[in-house]
Computed example of a mutant assay.
Amino acid sequence: MSKVVLITGTSTGLGQSLAAKMAELGYVVYATMRDLAKAAPLLEVADRGHSLRVLPLDVQNTATIQNAVDTIIREHGRIDILVNNAGAGFVKTTEMAIEAEMQWVMDVNFHGVVRCTKAVLAHMRKMRSGRIINISSVGGLVGQPFNELYCAAKFAVEGYTEAMASYIQPSFNIQFTAVEPGGIYSEFANSVLSQLQADGGLAEGDYRGVFEQYLGGIQQRTPEQTARLYQTAEQVAQVVLEVVESDDPPVRVRTSSWANEFCAYKTDADPSGKAQQKMVIDTMLHANH
């Protein structure tokens, strides 16, 4: 029986690549996005005879999440895999960010993950089976200049994933993994760079010097350096697929050698997060073991 997959944020980049790849491999894929006008590439995959359906879903809108989940349950009776991929970059100093922006970056990147997880959890718990993969970032492990609010949201995703893995997984056989890419060649990355270059306010006042250092570092990368840092969406999708198909998935995984090097001080002692997971379970749920 083919597994049923719900993926958020599939209009471009990693989400689109993953949805197409999984459909081609025989999964029953529900690819979701805010703007169905961007659905054409995935509809072409469906037209080739693969089981892929596009549904509207905005991770900031609980009603759209519930409608999508209800549709899938009505049509298939279960959701085996949730990939929380939808997210948005944000590059601005804390002093420059307005209240609405601070709320938005956390809502899209963290609260959206929680909303979608909450919507599927009861169905997976009933089955005593499921897999939830949260697309995080190396920015969820290592804070970076001018990315503090985005990093904070991804740090939240990391903590949420670890906490859910500590008791939902052993109690209900629902496995959680945070996937941590470095750079991805995508509309996401291009939009962040465009934001950087367009937002002249960052280059004024006391921040100007350090901002120019940061932007200059990006602009001066050699092709070889860029090739090490960035992956294609297809390469990252392959790592996600390996997590999906693993019998014993990691709690966290980086998607490239560069990402592993960048996060080494945080991850070398426990690259997969499994040792920390076991320690937490043994320490805090010891009465059940």
Results as ranks from 00 to 15, higher is better:
residue 5 V to G: 01
residue 104 W to A: 09
residue 51 S to E: 14
residue 172 F to H: 12
residue 285 L to S: 14
residue 153 A to T: 07
residue 159 G to A: 07
residue 195 Q to I: 03
residue 27 Y to K: 00
residue 222 T to C: 04
residue 27 Y to M: 05
residue 44 E to H: 10
residue 152 A to R: 05
residue 113 V to E: 00
residue 105 V to K: 04
residue 256 S to Q: 04
residue 278 K to E: 12
residue 246 S to A: 12
residue 171 S to H: 14
residue 156 A to C: 08
residue 137 S to L: 08
residue 90 F to M: 05
residue 4 V to C: 06
residue 168 I to P: 01
residue 159 G to K: 06
residue 228 R to W: 04
residue 32 T to W: 03
residue 207 Y to N: 15
residue 42 L to K: 01
residue 135 I to N: 04
residue 113 V to R: 05
residue 115 R to Q: 08
residue 127 M to H: 11
residue 241 L to P: 00
residue 288 N to S: 14
residue 196 L to H: 00
residue 142 V to D: 03
residue 151 C to D: 15
residue 56 P to H: 06
residue 37 A to Q: 11
residue 135 I to S: 02
residue 279 M to D: 11
residue 248 D to Y: 08
residue 188 F to A: 00
residue 112 G to S: 04
residue 203 A to V: 06
residue 177 T to D: 03
residue 169 Q to T: 11
residue 8 T to L: 06
residue 74 R to D: 13
residue 45 V to P: 01
residue 160 Y to T: 10
residue 110 F to L: 15
residue 222 T to W: 00
residue 108 V to N: 01
residue 191 S to T: 15
residue 88 A to C: 09
residue 223 P to L: 04
residue 163 A to I: 13
residue 62 T to S: 13
residue 223 P to I: 04
residue 195 Q to G: 12
residue 149 L to M: 14
residue 192 V to I: 15
residue 141 L to C: 07
residue 5 V to L: 01
residue 274 K to E: 07
residue 93 T to Q: 06
residue 278 K to M: 10
residue 1 M to W: 12
residue 238 Q to G: 05
residue 87 G to R: 02
residue 36 L to S: 05
residue 141 L to R: 10
residue 184 I to P: 04
residue 278 K to A: 15
residue 141 L to Y: 11
residue 74 R to L: 12
residue 231 Q to S: 14
residue 42 L to D: 07
residue 90 F to K: 09
residue 42 L to W: 02
residue 194 S to P: 06
residue 210 V to D: 15
residue 279 M to L: 15
residue 90 F to I: 05
residue 226 T to K: 04
residue 111 H to V: 15
residue 202 L to P: 00
residue 170 P to K: 07
residue 254 R to I: 05
residue 9 G to Y: 03
residue 285 L to R: 14
residue 180 E to A: 07
residue 36 L to P: 08
residue 119 A to T: 12
residue 27 Y to R: 04
